[in-house]
Amino acid sequence: MIAALAMLAAASARAEPKPVTFSVMTYNVEGLPWPVRKGRGTALKRIGHELAAMRAKGVEPDVVLIQEGFRDEIWDLIDESQYPYVARGPRKGQRDANVFPKGQRPDFRRVKYRRKGEGLGKWGSSGLWVLSNHPIEWVKSHAYRYCAGLDCLANKGVMLVAVDVQGLPTPVEIADTHLNSKGASGVPRSRATQAHHLQADELKRFMQADRTPGAPLIVGGDFNVMHSPERFDHVMNDYPFEVVSRWCHARPGACDTQISYDGDAPWLNTQDLIGFLNGEAVAVTPIAVEATFDGADEPVLSDHDGYKVTFRLTPKG
């Protein structure tokens, strides 16, 4: 009798869902080609080396979301980093259907500042990559139709991957994106902002159409919203995911925050954001936030720091 009760208790313990710790880092690696940037090939390889050093210490992110991985040396970063699973976002030649139906398409002249890169074709890919410790089940992507200025030379867009995390009843879906810049685009702020809004709308329509309903979701990337409440609010309008920095700021003590948060709106102090959405079968909760590649534990190797968030993924039921 005692043995039978012990067996039942052990079986119950095995069946009880256990939370999984899962970390995601977004990092704009500034992998721009010469003559726009010099020395970036060497820097990309060093980033891969530093990721491998983090791996040796057991502190590497489970998933790395990369932006501006345009150069061929991005493969050196990938090889050095030792991530077993890799996915790539829209390539230079990818063109996708207009997500806005006829009658709802925006009044936006797509070629207005040719001397600033508009209408000259795509000189580079989206620069988006996902590196993962966990198997990537599938990849979907969308190249943005609308852009402004020098940003038009890259085929910016969004990619969505499904990652199989052991111990969870369903894959975690993760999106990586890079939205239109402001002053760096070289065109008037009003035009750059309009393009940014349109890309945000494309992002939301893509996610609505292509993500699995009810799947746990993490969204990261270079959103180019720094010091721009207008841009941030447009990204967040009509989309239910919550931004980690805003969530943690509203809940003092809920996150182990090892990053400088200044002011009442820390989500506007950076271009780089990570957001999340609970799934029907998996709850997603941020528990720690830290900067990487900021000169502390890792050297500064880009014009962006890395931004790493650790989540607790808890199966429901």
Rank of each mutant, 00 (worst) to 15 (best):
R37T: 15
G39N: 06
G39Y: 07
R40H: 15
G41Q: 14
T42Q: 15
T42D: 15
A43T: 09
L44Y: 04
K45V: 13
K45Q: 14
I47M: 13
I47Y: 05
G48W: 03
H49E: 15
E50M: 08
E50P: 02
L51S: 03
A53V: 09
A53K: 14
M54H: 09
V59Q: 11
V59P: 01
E60I: 08
P61C: 11
V63Q: 02
V63N: 07
V64S: 04
L65C: 05
L65T: 00
Q67G: 05
Q67H: 02
D72M: 03
E73M: 07
W75G: 07
W75V: 11
D76I: 10
D76K: 06
L77C: 07
D79Q: 12
D79N: 12
D79C: 08
E80I: 09
E80P: 05
S81F: 01
Q82M: 11
Y83T: 08
Y83A: 00
A87H: 05
A87M: 10
R88V: 15
R88P: 06
R88S: 10
P90S: 14
P90L: 10
R91Y: 13
R91E: 14
G93Q: 13
G93E: 14
R95Y: 06
R95D: 13
D96G: 09
N98D: 15
F100N: 03
F100S: 08
P101S: 11
P101F: 06
K102H: 13
Q104S: 14
Q104H: 15
P106Q: 05
D107W: 10
V111N: 02
V111I: 11
K112F: 08
Y113L: 02
R114Q: 11
R114P: 09
R115F: 12
E118I: 05
G119I: 12
G119N: 10
K122I: 07
W123H: 07
G124R: 05
S125T: 08
G127W: 03
W129S: 02
V130M: 03
S132K: 02
H134P: 06
P135Y: 07
I136N: 01
I136P: 01
I136F: 01
W138Q: 12
K140T: 01
S141F: 02
S141N: 09
Y144Q: 04
A148W: 03
A148C: 05
